[in-house]
Design a binder for these strands. Structure first.
Length: 475
RNA sequence: CGGGGUGUAGCGCAGUUGGCUAGCGCGCAUCGUUCGGGACGAUGAGGCCGGCGGUUCAAGUCCGCCCACCCCGACCA
């Protein structure tokens, strides 16, 4: 592999690298509107792969897709107190339509709880109407002060699931099933290991009873929230009067969940796996898994490429043949490296003489000789190896950068230097959490789902604490 | 919203104490030669110098105001 002149070195300037690599690999572009981004076809294909995977999993749980309006009457957002407090600073509001001032301003949805639950109140009458399991694939707008491609933009794409259940436990079980889907998706598809657990009171979704979250540690030592699944309790049910008659004819409020994963995860995989040469896309999400670069562009070589690629396509591998005449071979190598294609297949006259091909791994740069007769199994094996390697190296990094600490001195020192996760006792008093954030930038990320009760003292105030929490600086 | 920076061709930039027809590299187009790690030559297209207003014989250049974007903080998926 050779140096890329047009992108900053990840090792030297990771922020600059991140922006460069997104623009140069044509995942996305800046837009004329401040804080909003254009997702280009190459980036959108990744999103489509994410959609295809998750949509199938949601449907297996009985979830149906629907669509609700972009515009939400302001009064709806005000019905749940914590919810409006959480979102009002970030709202984009439409005040005029058709040249006239609207009688009630309309918020551009920051999330759809309120407009959906107003409708749920009409749709849900009987225990027989439960559970109600809907998902939306849409866009939302949050007027962020400071934006960053994919990771934090004023408008972003996501899926938002919204369910209503008869009991607290049913809702909790469902929220955790979604959490399981997200965990498998993040780890097996995006090759990004996650910590899974509950959020603190402060970090909870506005209006939720419990927020479950998945957190991934990035190479710069900061954590990204990869997805959330909220148990909303009966907070919204009471605010929106979502009631049903149970089997005994008694009126009950429903119990609800909402859950989301966004285009932000694309930012996470860029940052997690890429290197100085550009993107490295996990094979399971890459729009192109193997790219053919014919060394000589004559008919014989192209036919050979065609024949082999057809065989790979038959077994479900996403391939592309780069037959452009105007670009040199070296130029193509650089471009496909920048774009993070997992495997490059080189075919020239040398290979053709012996019915061979050369497979080149993007993650290690290793060249692997293969035979025409074994290309399918070799490609499949390499794709799996690359997928596993990406996951393993992120996991190793995560483990090496998880620090179990008992003193606040140690805590501060780590946050001031290499960052990463800090695993420490916390008394669960929001005051300590706020102080720690102020002094170190670290916030609580999660309490692990399987956390055991222990005897300890809060890393900050020394008061008795029963659980260790994960802390990190958040994106 | 606070701090810093930048606006000149699609992109990256140069343009001196104001002075002639606004330049360079990359990219783009056409033709030819190349092609196992970012090829080369020839020709060519492409500009309201972010906007408005001043100063001046003369403004990309000086002054004022505005706008936009980027980077760093507080807020957030």
């Amino acid at each position: 592999m050779f140096e890329k002149k047009e992108i900053a070195k990840k090792s030297v300037n990771p922020d600059r690298w991140y922006t460069d690599v997104i623009l140069k690999s044509e995942l996305a572009d800046y837009s004329p509107v401040r804080g909003c981004m254009i997702i280009r076809p190459y980036g959108y294909e990744i999103w489509e792969n994410i959609q295809n995977y998750l949509d199938k999993k949601f449907k297996e749980l009985g979830v149906k897709n629907a669509y609700f309006p972009t515009f939400i009457p302001m009064s709806f957002l005000q019905r749940e107190k914590e919810h409006v407090e959480g979102f009002s600073p970030q709202l984009a509001v439409v005040t005029h339509g058709g040249g006239e001032k609207l009688s009630e301003p309309l918020a551009v949805r920051p999330t759809s709880e309120t407009i959906m639950y107003d409708t749920y109140a009409r749709w849900i009458q009987s225990w027989r109407d439960l559970p109600l399991l809907l998902n939306l694939w849409n866009n939302v707008v949050r007027w962020e002060k400071r934006t960053y491609l994919f990771l934090r933009t004023a408008e972003f794409l996501w899926q938002e699931g919204h369910t209503a259940h008869a009991t607290f436990d049913d809702a909790d079980t469902f929220a955790r099933k979604i959490l399981e889907i997200y965990t498998v998706f993040d780890e097996d598809v995006l090759a990004t290991p996650v910590l899974v657990g509950k959020k603190s009171e402060n970090e909870k979704f506005p209006g939720a009873a419990i927020t479950y979250s998945l957190e991934a540690l990035m190479p710069d030592g900061k954590a990204i929230q990869m997805g959330t699944s909220h148990h909303l309790g009966d907070n919204f049910a009471k605010a929106f009067k979502i009631k049903y008659l149970d089997k005994n004819g008694r009126e009950q409020f429903v119990w609800q969940t909402s859950w989301a994963e966004t285009t932000r995860v694309i930012g996470a995989i860029i940052m997690a796996h890429g290197d100085d040469q550009g993107l490295i896309l996990p094979p399971n999400i890459a729009p192109i898994q193997a790219v053919f670069v014919p060394i000589k562009l004559n008919e014989k070589v192209l036919n050979y490429c065609q024949k082999i690629s057809q065989e790979l396509v038959k077994s479900g591998i996403r391939v592309h043949i780069d037959s452009r005449e105007e670009k040199s071979v070296g130029w193509k190598f650089h471009e496909w490296e920048l774009k993070g294609i997992p495997i490059r297949i080189e075919i020239g006259e040398k290979e053709m003489e012996n019915d061979e091909l050369t497979l080149v791994r993007r993650d290690t740069g290793e060249k692997v000789k293969s035979q025409k007769s074994k290309v399918k199994s070799d490609t499949e094996r390499l794709l799996k190896e690359i997928q596993d390697n990406l996951f393993e190296r992120m996991k190793k990094f995560r483990d090496e950068n998880t620090h179990t600490v008992s003193s606040y001195e140690e805590f501060k020192k780590i946050m001031a230097t290499q960052k990463g996760y800090i695993y420490a006792f916390w008394c669960e008093d929001p005051v300590c959490e706020a102080k720690i954030k102020e002094e170190t930038k670290a916030t609580t990320r999660i309490l692990p789902l399987d956390a055991k009760e222990e005897k300890g003292e809060c890393v900050y105030c020394k008061k008795p604490a029963t659980h260790r929490w994960y802390f990190a600086q958040a994106y």
